[in-house]
Amino acid sequence: MIGRAREFRTAGRAPAPPRPAATVVLVRGDPLQVLLLRRATGLAFAPGLYAFPGGSLDRVDEGETDGAPDPLLRFRRAAVRETHEETGIRLDPKCLKPWSIWVTPPFEPRRYETVFFLALAPAADDVVLDPAECAEARWVAPARAAAERLPMLPPTLYTLRELATFASAAHAMDSPRVVRRFALDLDLDADPPRWVETDGREERS
């Protein structure tokens, strides 16, 4: 990653515009467990890494609803659609809790601005994987998954650490949440390089 950041700085390219995306952190049980998928090795973005279900917004996610207008509608629809495609689990778009927003760092060639939602997994739903996208699915305790050093992107690890503080899935879903937008970049002038907010502030965590 540091190599890509250095190459980007040397090349002086403009950053790719981030595409809108949605991710679902599925939680269940007491003690809390979270669903982690291992992404297929053939994928263009984050191949082979552990991640939550999700993906880019699509044309099919656009359009109005009959109910009250919801500014996040297309994100909720994308979150539900991707979760169903990748895991077979069906969710109610209204039951997704906005959790955080993550923007891929400017040096990455594929960039996303992703709304992370928290959702309670339906009790009886078994995971049915799409082998083209996912190699494996695991329900894990977040603290344990974070400690295992599984290959994953920083937002996945950060989210697992956040969830490790909750006793149960219900506690996490019911928690008051101040949603933050994480738009980080690597400060290559620091030794060792460290994450900073893109406006130059240090990462507050």
Partner: peptide
């Protein structure tokens, strides 16, 4: 479709 996240969407995602 809007190829970027709109400010209104960010406001909603931030719970505001």
């Amino acid at each position: 479709m809007t190829e970027q996240v709109t400010p209104e969407e960010r406001i909603a995602a931030l719970g505001l």
